[in-house]
Simulated assay, not measured.
Amino acid sequence: MSLANIDPQRVEVLKTIQSLINCLVNIKDETGEFLMTLEDGRVIDTKGWNDWEWTHGIGDTSSFANIARVDIYPGLYGLLKFHEITGDIEALRIALTWFRDRFAVGTTKNVNTMSPLLTAAYLHEAKHANYAVHLDSWAEWAMYEMPRTQEGGLQHITYLVDNHQQLWDDTLMMSVLPLAKIGLVLGRPEYVEEAKRQFMLHVKYLADPTTGLWFHDFSLEFTAQLGWTFDGRHHFARALWGRGNCWITVAIPDFIELLNLPPSDGLRLFLVSTLTAQIDALVRLQDQKTGLWHTILDDASSYLEASATAGFAYGLLKSLRLRLIPREERYVRAAMLAVSGVLGKIAANGELQQVSFGTPVFDDIEGYKQIPLTSMPYGQSLALLALTEYLRTFL
């Protein structure tokens, strides 16, 4: 794309996005510190772009058996959105190359590994590639074979653990959105209806009616990464974990747009009120000096974290654009402050800094506060989504 005769502010944002993409696809673990060995002998680079093994387990953090690799999905999705609004051919090429290489190798189906299928469905719909067989295989598995909790929730199974009877907020982003889009693309309304039901069920158990925040995806009463379990019917640490919450701020506007739900639709009204309650709580908890949010949203002693902030920025901006929330000064200010905070954490080489490493479930708040900070692909990806939406909405 030529940057000649473009508004200077827009030029700077475009350059920053391009640097984010370059860093995203080239990020490496130079020391081997973040490599993870699976039981079958495979060694997974938890930082690298060219992988599809998004494992998530429970165990000693030094072994990285508990990492949640949810990084590639927003990266691919961000590349797609950047291509859609700018026509950038390189972004499209990177995404298509990733799918070509990864589909050739394959992977084990779980909640996290399904997430790229959302982008694949969009690419298939636009006739950039023919992914019909893959879309059918993954959606049929999610619809009929993925383990369910009581009441039919999608159990948050991962590569290493089954997470018996557990609902996680990430599932909406990683599996439910792809299921809905595939249903639309393949003409299977039963997938769409199941996706709607999953959103309602997850709201029922993960959204805190007192604060508006989410357990494991928002503030105050939410389980950082394990939302709700039917095994004992309780939440875990009840941590209002930042990045967990940001997946909800991203997923609800995306879902409403994806299904093109009309303003009078009952599910839309239900989801908008849920989203608004969360956003109202987020606005109150945003750090006014930096524009960032703390990794434990209601705990000012926990460090400020950039990847969650990028997710919140995206959700706020998109909610404003879709008019899910009114263009009131408090919302616009929070969104712009968040964008400023994200931009302030992007280094000259395009790396989003102040990003927490993959986070397991802890039984107490302190565990979340001790997660190390390091560059990660999901940080790049969420920043890419936020700045792409910023480019579309305000520039």
Rank of each mutant, 00 (worst) to 15 (best):
T309G: 09
W138Y: 15
D88I: 05
R69S: 01
F222H: 13
Q165W: 10
F236K: 07
T393D: 14
L160H: 05
P253V: 00
K369S: 08
R42S: 13
T295H: 00
Q165Y: 13
E53T: 10
H56L: 07
N26G: 11
L282D: 00
Y131G: 00
N163G: 09
I89H: 09
Q18K: 13
V185D: 02
V203M: 14
V13P: 07
I27N: 06
G75I: 09
R93V: 04
N163T: 11
I157C: 12
G75R: 08
V133Q: 15
V332W: 14
D7V: 03
A308K: 07
L343A: 04
N5T: 06
L297N: 10
K81P: 09
D208H: 04
F362S: 09
L304Y: 00
N22W: 04
V283I: 06
E257Y: 04
L201M: 08
H56G: 09
A277Y: 08
I58R: 11
P360L: 01
V43F: 07
N130V: 05
V11A: 01
H202I: 12
L179V: 03
F218S: 10
L324F: 00
T309I: 05
K369F: 02
A139G: 11
F218D: 02
V250G: 12
V250Y: 15
L269W: 09
N245M: 14
L387Q: 11
L220M: 04
G379F: 06
Y368W: 04
P189H: 05
G59P: 03
L201Q: 06
W168N: 09
G78D: 08
A386L: 12
K127E: 14
W241N: 07
T113I: 05
L160G: 01
L352T: 11
